[in-house]
């Protein structure tokens, strides 16, 4: 959806931004449904959720948090650089952000791989036989929420790649604010920060409440 959102011909800066924020609200409520499930089951199966959280690797979770927070910083810097009409610097920060996204996904892959290797995945016999109902739900939610979040990281990364191409193709000396490129990078940035915010909640709720 994002490339379409960013590429409309309208030159209304505020309008495009309102549109992006409204779209972010839909994303928040999409995750909101899952957070609601999490809250209800955490309340119902408090003990099971505590014991299941021990299975997750808090160190990897923490590293991923730091990676995503840093990517938010580079994203904000990329926007600032373009606003100050320094497209080269902006592209550097965009690549840094994309790099963080790749590192995040790599770590996530290792984590998921280890879990699946140990037979902990939705519907597995091991999970059904050796775990309590609350623990099964914990892992079901863990895989759904981090999976949906990972999907958003992938989409965000692709959007940032597109933005990088747009910035790279800016004609020399042209004010990026006039051509609408600033609007595009700001909206892509809003999306990226939202992905970060969702992880900010996921990290303590899954990894730290042991």
């Amino acid at each position: 959806m994002e490339p379409v959102e960013g590429s409309h011909e309208h030159s209304d800066y505020i309008g495009a931004k309102i549109g992006m924020w409204l779209f972010l609200f839909t994303e928040v409520l999409l995750f909101g449904g899952l957070f609601l499930c999490y809250a209800v089951y955490r309340h119902r199966y408090a003990q099971d959720f505590h014991s299941a959280a021990h299975e997750l690797n808090a160190v990897l979770g923490c590293v991923n948090t730091l990676v995503l927070l840093t990517s938010s910083l580079t994203m904000a810097l990329a926007i600032s650089a373009l606003q100050k009409n320094r497209p080269g610097l902006s592209r550097f920060y965009l690549w840094a952000t994309i790099g963080c996204a790749v590192i995040f996904l790599g770590i996530k892959y290792v984590e998921w791989g280890a879990k699946i290797h140990h037979g902990i995945y939705p519907g597995s016999e091991h999970l059904m036989a050796n775990f309590n109902p609350g623990e099964r739900l914990f892992f079901g939610l863990y895989f759904s929420m981090t999976g949906l979040h990972g999907l958003h990281v992938i989409i965000g990364g692709i959007v940032l790649l597109c933005v990088e191409r747009i910035v790279a193709k800016l004609p020399r000396g042209e004010d990026p604010g006039e051509s609408g490129t600033v609007t595009i990078i700001e909206n892509a940035g809003l999306y990226w920060h939202l992905v970060d915010i969702i992880w900010v909640y996921l990290f303590p709720l899954y990894y730290l409440l042991t």
Binding site: S72, M75, L190, L194, D196, V200
Partner: peptide
Amino acid sequence: AAVVIWYFM
């Protein structure tokens, strides 16, 4: 989240 929204966003 509030800090991210307030400054970064």
